[in-house]
């Protein structure tokens, strides 16, 4: 489904601030894989997401989606088959437009946009059905401006908008990090449900180790621009936070230094 080959990204090359954000990354995701990505700040998680989504072009290496090389495809074209939810709840929706208009924009993602009505009666019914699955009562507020919703509601809507056209790849970029614990749990549960329902190939970055263990069938750990741990299947189910920290120490010979990652 997703194939990354020899991806390297270096920022500020040949200056004292040089930073190797990604070093020779190879990563393959099969159809329906749900991979959680952990790692301390600056490990290259976000750069990895940006390389896949197309907002960052790799220095070398190639990105393949569905056996098609998309390395040079600009972000907006790639997003026809990549859904993405950002950390900031404000980033995934248009605040001065209504819920149904936002959904209509997401609905048009994998088609060519035309001069036909974005919100039709038939689509309204469809949107209502999808919103029902969120259990937030948003289906009765189709005409409400999204700017009036709370952060949790907006993030749930962003998640729905990123997924209901069933993209080939779903990218979740710490999408629960800016929410309070109960809202974060709600979104985490929703994520699990939606990914399962549409059988989406998913890559989720998180700082919350427990979340990384609870969700998905595969876990990768990144450090200094490299993938240092890749665990899947039964082994992942047996994983605990202690074991993870131990693994990190064994591989790197040092403590994981990010408090946020440990406590998360």
């Amino acid at each position: 489904m997703l194939n990354l080959k020899d991806i390297s990204v270096t920022f500020n090359e040949d200056t004292p601030d040089e930073k190797k954000a990604l070093q020779d990354i190879d990563l393959t995701l099969g159809e329906g894989d749900f991979v959680t990505v952990i790692g301390s700040n600056g490990a290259g998680k976000s750069t990895l997401m940006n390389v896949i989504s197309g907002s960052q072009r790799p220095d070398i290496g190639s990105v393949e989606i569905n056996q098609k090389n998309v390395t040079l495809l600009p972000e907006f074209k790639r997003s026809m088959f990549i859904g993405r939810v950002f950390q900031d709840p404000m980033a995934g929706t248009a605040p001065s437009m209504t819920i149904e208009e936002n959904l209509a924009m997401a609905y048009a993602r994998n088609k060519k946009r035309k001069l036909q009505k974005g919100v039709t009666k038939k689509r309204k019914e469809l949107f209502r059905d999808y919103l029902l699955t969120l259990n937030l009562g948003l289906e009765d507020r189709l005409n409400a401006k999204v700017g009036l919703l709370s952060g949790g509601e907006r993030q749930a809507l962003s998640l729905l908008m990123a997924t209901f056209t069933e993209p080939d790849i779903l990218l979740l970029d710490e999408h629960t990090a800016a929410l309070d614990p109960s809202r974060a749990e709600l979104i985490t549960n929703l994520t699990g449900d939606i990914v399962k329902r549409f059988n989406l190939t998913t890559l989720m970055v998180t700082h919350n180790m427990q979340q990384a263990l609870d969700l998905g069938n595969r876990l990768i750990m990144m450090d200094k621009g490299q993938i240092i741990l890749d665990i899947d299947g039964k082994k992942k189910q047996e994983l605990t936070i202690e074991k993870l920290l131990h693994e990190f120490k064994r591989i790197r010979g040092e403590q994981l230094d990010d408090d946020r990652a440990i406590l998360g």
């Binding site: 989504s53 972000e75 907006f76 074209k77 997003s79 026809m80 993405r84 950002f86 404000m90 980033a91 995934g92 929706t93 248009a94 605040p95 001065s96 437009m97 924009m105 997401a106 048009a108 993602r109 994998n110 908008m161 990123a162």
Partner: peptide, 10 residues
């Protein structure tokens, strides 16, 4: 309204 968002919607 939100350029980043609509770009991520192709």
């Amino acid at each position: 309204d939100n350029e980043k968002m609509i770009r991520s919607l192709s």
